[in-house]
Structure formats: structure tokens, C-alpha cells
Amino acid sequence: MAIRTYIQAITDALDVEMALDDSVFILGEDVGKRGGVFSATAGLIEKYGEERVLDTPLSESAIVGVAIGASMAGLKPVAEIQFADFIFPAYNQIVSEAARIRYRSNNDWNCPVTIRAPYGGGVHGALYHSQSVEALFYHVPGLKIVTPSTPYEAKGLLIAAIRDPDPVLFLEHKKCYRLVKGEVPDDDYTLPIGKANVKREGDDITVFTYGLMTHYCLEAADVLAKDGISVHLVDLVSIRPMDQQAIVEAAERTGKVLIVHEDNKFGGVGAEISAIIAEECLFSLDAPIRRLCGPEIPAMPFSPPLEKYYLLSASKIAESMRELARY
């Protein structure tokens, strides 16, 4: 198996699936000749031609709208939103059309569209290049949302998303693109959407997270391990469907739960996780559920010290873990 970066695994998945299935095509801003702003689609236009790798106008509503139409006509589009921050013009298409068409048409129509969107901060991208958008979508029934944290999962889940008969919002933390490397099989494989992943077993506290924070949490858990505190770490991988069984099992294991996400706390993914735990296993809890999240301010600051303050880090996470372990 080759060692690939996260972004290479994305490209690899697109390549593999386009080679296997003629109905798969890519559309988005600069995805063609420029190979994508993060070069996720680099080399694909050369290989598959401009009919299957479409450079679009700067109109997210059009990108997603066209993708939805094409998918309902039998194609399997992979729409790229250059930055998740720009997805809002397409919100109506995603929520009102893609997520609801199967229900609205009484199962006559479905919408096998995949929407890729790089999200998250830590790249000095400031307000319009750093947002986390998962909480704005995960409320919506009919929409699947995945955010893999490793190259292996990125490839397997992207192929699964393309093959899925319903719309999948595929969120890629942009800081993972080149930071995270790992072994990735060359062939096509899929991973199940809706399954969480226990990254590390432990008995003192349980931590739920996803995306880039998975790596920070692993780092923090390593530090705590040296002090004899063992962390049970769950990477959600899928935000919707959310793996409730895995959440309850992991919460019951230690009774002390910390939820970590970069997105701000209020109404975030952590709110749903803690509600699930409160509903399903209150009597296993040994401490109030904690959430360590981004602050309640409108966006990621541009100033480097403020960006650093805004963002979670392994040491901030370790401190929070330690407090919970001590409780």
C-alpha cells in the first residue's frame, strides 16, 4: 500500500471511481485546468476530458443545482464547493431539493449527488476560508454528512458517497489535506457511511470528536497516557447518520464524556451527542458532559494570535481531558 496524503486520497478516490463508472463526473470552480484550488482534481481533466471535469462559473447554487438535475437524470456528479464558506448560495438546493426529493416524490426520484467541501480553520484563511458548516446541515433529514479524518477513510468514504443513491455532503478539513498521511490501498473500496471509529481504547474518560480534531485528540491522549490517564477516543466519521450505538457504548464505558469540535459549541454537533447520551445512558454518567468547542464569535479571526486563541489545540484538549479525568 502506498502512503498518501489526505488530498491524494481524495484525488485517488475520484480517479478510481471515474475510471470504473462513466456516469461519474466532477463540476466546480477551477476543478478543471487549474486542478482545483487544493489540487484535489489535479490531472483528472487531462485523463477524463472536459466533459467529465467541468469548470463552472462562480455560482454555488448553479454548481449544486446542475449536479442535482444531472443526478436525477442518472448521472453521478461530484460537485466541489471551493470552500465550505461559499456553500450558502447552494443551501436551498441542498436542503430543499437534494435532501427532500426522495420523500417529496414518494420514492420516484432520488438524488445520488456528492458535494465535496473543504472546511475548517488553522490555515490563516480568516472569515471566508475557515468556517465549519456541519451544524448548519446536520439538522436536515435526508442528507448524509461525512467528515473522514484519515486518507484511508477519505478514499473509502468518498467512493461510498459517490455510489450512495442519496445526497452526501462530504466535508474535508482542509488542514488535514497535507498534514495527515497514511496508507491507502490502490484499488477501489468503500467504507460504511454512519459508522463511528474507536481510535483508541481507554477507561478513564471518553472523548468524541471528528475531522482534524481527531488528530489533536490523539496527540492529547498520548500526553495523558504518560500520566496514567487512559482516553477512549471515538471519531464520529459520519455526522449524519450519527452512530448512536457507538456513542452510547463509548459513553457507558467510562461515564465521563468530553466532546471536542472546532465548530462553536451552541447547537453544534456536540449538542446532539450529549442529548443522545442524556437520553440513552444517563445512569452511566459519572460527570457532567463537557464540550470543548470553538468560541461563540461569528468567525475565525485573521490575526494569528487571535486565530490561535480561537482554534483548539492538543494542549487545550489535554487540559480539558485532564480536568474531566480529575472530576
Binding site: E219, V223, A314, S315, A318, E319, R322, E323, R326
Partner: peptide, 10 residues
């Protein structure tokens, strides 16, 4: 990774 001394509850 630089780690702060545990503080907090003392």
C-alpha cells in the same frame, strides 16, 4: 507539544 502544568482545582 508544550504542555501547561495542570492547574485548575487546587
Amino acid at each position: 507539544m508544550p504542555m501547561d502544568e495542570p492547574k485548575g482545582c487546587e
